[in-house]
Design a protein around this nucleic acid. Structure first.
Length: 116
RNA sequence: UCAGUCGGCUGGACGGCCGCUCCGGCAUUUCACCGAAAGGUGGCCGGGGAGGAAAGUCCGGGCUCCAAGGACAAACGGUGCCGGAUAACGUCCGGCGGGGGCAACCCCAGGGAAAGUGCCACAGAGAGCAGACCGCCCGUCUUCGCGAAAGCUUCGACGGGUAAGGGUGAAAAGGUGCGGUAAGAGCGCACCGCGCCGGCGGCAACGCAGGCGGCACGGCAAACCCCACCGGGAGCAAGACCGAAUAGGAGCGGCGCGGGACGCAAGUCUCAGGUCCUGUCCGGAUCAGCCGUUCGGGUAGGUUGCUGGAGGCGGCGGGUAACCGGCGUCCCAGAGGAAUGGCCGUCACGCAUGUGGCUCGCGCUACAUGCCUUACAGAACCCGGCUUAUAGGCCGGCUGAUAUG
RNA sequence: GCUGCCGUAGCUCAGUGGUAGAGCACUUCAUUGGUAAUGAAGAGGUCCACAGUUCAAUCCUGUGCGGCAGCA
């Protein structure tokens, strides 16, 4: 999984479309090139102390790792902003929410995948 | 057994599936991808992978750079009983002094207020080399009453004595007792306190006993200050190496040369700067621009610093202890938008609820279900401390009370 | 990583070792036919928390909590 590392990438992605969920907010932005999908994670200090912030980021990362790659479009940057509910919600429920958020993010792809 | 106090340890266990990162080995190693470059990423196997506080950043060091001839001082900041430990410390250990507690034990902190400056509100008569408000006593005068008188007694005024008692205050001119006195008072005596002197014990802080002095010297220096000791500054984003584009610097080569007027333009006319060769004139070169190329500095970026160390463990020796010495053994996290994880199963612990048993009751115990899967909390150059947070569990020393033998 | 500042009434801020104030806001009364303005009176405080120094702490010292700002 390619990771976003530069602050400029995060700022650029923040201008794209946003899809809120209970445990996170999903942001996406199409890049000009057709490179691989890249992911970034943002967990602010408002969420909690360092232990809780680390835990939110790790759970979100595992959700992305287990998600179906077909939903994600190449040449896009995604940013997941953690919320405090990511500490307590069950893993299966959060994975479901992530799939739903990807469907809302790319409605034109829903038809393609159902046909395929 | 109960209550207390001090110290130490621990901080869930086992397993399955899927991942992350570092190290080592093998393979690839003229390979593939990203990048302008520096450089980075990519396979398989094995091994390692958060804490007692990793936290707060309150101190002390190592390390690195900067500054500085050396030492001292000034300014500023810090520390402060004595001795020891240590690389060092504001830390630790042992002892001294004061306070609290029946005790185990706990808490506090230098000297100087007779070097100087300053503050001590309110209350109170008097508060800094301080004081007679009430009171007590004496004398004179007056007044009430008793009395034959001497005298006693009551009210008041004036003069004086007095620091015992009352009252104010955080603090009131050493404290308690006896004597003494008109009443009192270190006025005298005893004990305690205080000061001075020399003696003894102790490395020292200090302690012990003795003599002398009738007491002179209130508190605050976490108020200024004096004394002694310590401190050059910055911090791994330190520093080192590699190194685009753009702008700027230097060298070389080529082309070109400033201002004004007229003109659509080509061009024409006119005026002319700095430096050098020459002091002046003339003449010449060159600069006031552009392009190319080379060089050095250096930004973004990359690599490194980066983990073997005042290191851990075991037993031995020295020391009351903190700690030290030597021996054996082990290698034990190194990320970089930041790895050390996600999901699941079983068990242990804990909590809650229900049911059964024991019990007057508190409660104890067995089973079932549910919850938390643990409290506080995440390395960021590395160590030694301090402080703060912390569910539950375990071990040991000591003290007091009670019971039994 | 390093450094500085702040925390006082509902809000914005003074303040000093000796029982804590200002402006706005709030309540009541007066004024007006009524409202505003104005005038008078009043209420409201763990001086961020805990220890220590002091006779006495909002102030001095230490520790903690929260907030703001700066440098590299």
């Amino acid at each position: 999984m390619e990771r976003l590392r530069q602050r400029a990438d995060f700022l650029a992605t923040a201008t794209g479309t946003k899809v809120p969920a209970a445990a996170f907010v999903l942001q996406a932005r199409k890049r000009s090139d057709e490179g691989p999908v890249r992911f970034g994670f943002t967990v602010t200090k408002k969420i909690g102390n360092a232990v809780e912030r680390n835990r939110v980021r790790r759970r979100l990362r595992e959700i992305v790792r287990h998600a179906k790659a077909a939903r994600m479009c190449a040449g896009h940057d995604y940013v997941l902003i953690g919320r405090r509910a990511a500490l307590t919600h069950t893993f299966a429920r959060m994975a479901e929410e992530f799939e739903a958020a990807l469907r809302r993010m790319h409605p034109e792809w829903q038809g393609n995948t159902s046909i395929a």
